[in-house]
Write a protein that binds this DNA or RNA. Structure first.
Lengths: 226, 226
DNA sequence: TCGGCATGCGACCGACCAGTCATATGACCG
DNA sequence: CGGTCATATGACTGGTCGGTCGCATGCCGA
């Protein structure tokens, strides 16, 4: 956790630090990211950063477990309760894609939990985040199964496959769609113009239909398929 | 490419170096991996390593594009030509899982192409490898589509989704199955006893059936489903 | 025996990093 | 005014790294 000093910081200074930290940790691995670099770019002496955070990991952990989720929640809002299970899943996926397009850096930071690393502490942190995500998805699918919308004897396996589809899988598809490299995307604050809501809906629909059929729902919705 | 000296090395010395390089690059990111460490562990002076390779990237590239694929081909053999499209895909997936279980370090090294990194040269290398894999899979699916086994209007999207399922997706499932962390797995040369051929077949069958239904084949095979 | 050439070798270089510490600043209080 | 306390600051430490360089070694052909 950040030290109390951090929370007493003048707004502007704190924002600068947080911004540069997000930029740094979003486009480099934890191991590659440099606290010195963050401090330099934020124009804050490194010594001062150590007044706010215990160490590099402390800052990273706070970003990953507190700040990024907060900003993400702020953007995606409450999960929709309307429509049937598949509509809700489609919404969920579309919101995720929207987040990726509108806030590439935050999305990348959130996805960093899947990064490999030799550092055991970072690995533990990443694992906890991943498992939390899996559990959330599993709960969704469980509800779907109970309502009879889907049919999956081995829910654990199903959850993990679905998670990779709507996580790395869709990210890959979106990048291909944008014709851009991850790092070009990270350089811009938003790609609003390049992947609008309509196209996002289509992609989300394709992916969900793929899952829907894969999980043995009776009648995959008609229309453009994957 | 390695310098000519490398190929003139006494077998034992070269093997030592290659082994330690695989170990190092398999359980650390490119950025985290240390040439000094490799040299130390292989008991070869760092200066000598620079007689064999231009630099760290040269060694990494050779491992990733020459040595690892060679060893993998040696293990998985020629793709089967028997059975229908789905049987062949199932074989393909099962062989991949077998490779992961029998040679975790090599499998991890091969998968390293998906690792994020800030280094543009490494990124280019990774991207080339990924794209080659995607193209290979795409060709398989294309053949399947032509034979009428599957139905996928947008083959690009389908290929990428399938790729993440049988790549990171199945790896994730296998790790959960083993109840192990990636790094525990990397520490052992083989996990033969813990995930035998029968269980592998079942998992491969589940995954392929998922894909089979997802891609709109008419009659998913009966049996244990996902 | 000698000379030259491929190779072995490890001390060394400059760069960078995470993290520390002694000192400085300045607000608030008595 | 003097003192105290939170905070600011940047030089400094110890360490690792990738990569180089100059000398040592040993083989081979003349």
């Amino acid at each position: 956790m950040p030290k109390s000093t951090f929370f007493r910081l003048p707004e502007e200074r704190r924002a600068r630090l947080v911004h540069e930290a997000i930029v740094e940790f979003a486009d480099r691995t934890y191991a590659e990211a440099s606290l010195s670099q963050i401090a330099r770019r934020a124009n804050i002496p490194k010594g001062s950063v150590y007044q706010y955070f215990e160490d590099k990991l402390d800052l990273y952990r706070w970003l990953l477990t507190e700040e990024a989720p907060r900003l993400k929640r702020e953007f995606v809002g409450k999960p929709s309760q309307e429509g049937d299970f598949w509509m809700r899943l489609e919404d969920f996926v579309e919101r995720g894609m929207a987040f990726l397009v509108e806030h590439p850096r935050l999305a990348r930071l959130s996805a960093a939990a899947a990064d490999p690393t030799a550092n055991p502490e970072v690995r533990g942190l990443h694992k906890a985040i991943c498992e939390a995500g899996i559990q959330e998805l599993r709960a969704m699918l469980e509800a779907g199964a109970e309502s009879g919308a889907l049919h999956a004897p081995d829910l654990d396996v199903a959850t993990r496959l679905v998670a990779t589809i709507i996580g790395p899988g869709l990210t890959d598809v979106v990048l291909k769609e944008l014709g851009a490299e991850l790092h070009e995307v990270l350089a811009s604050d938003s790609l609003r113009k390049r992947l609008g809501p309509k196209r996002r809906r289509t992609l989300a629909h394709q992916a969900v239909n793929f899952i829907r059929k894969g999980l043995g729902a009776e009648k995959p919705q008609r229309g453009k398929d994957t």
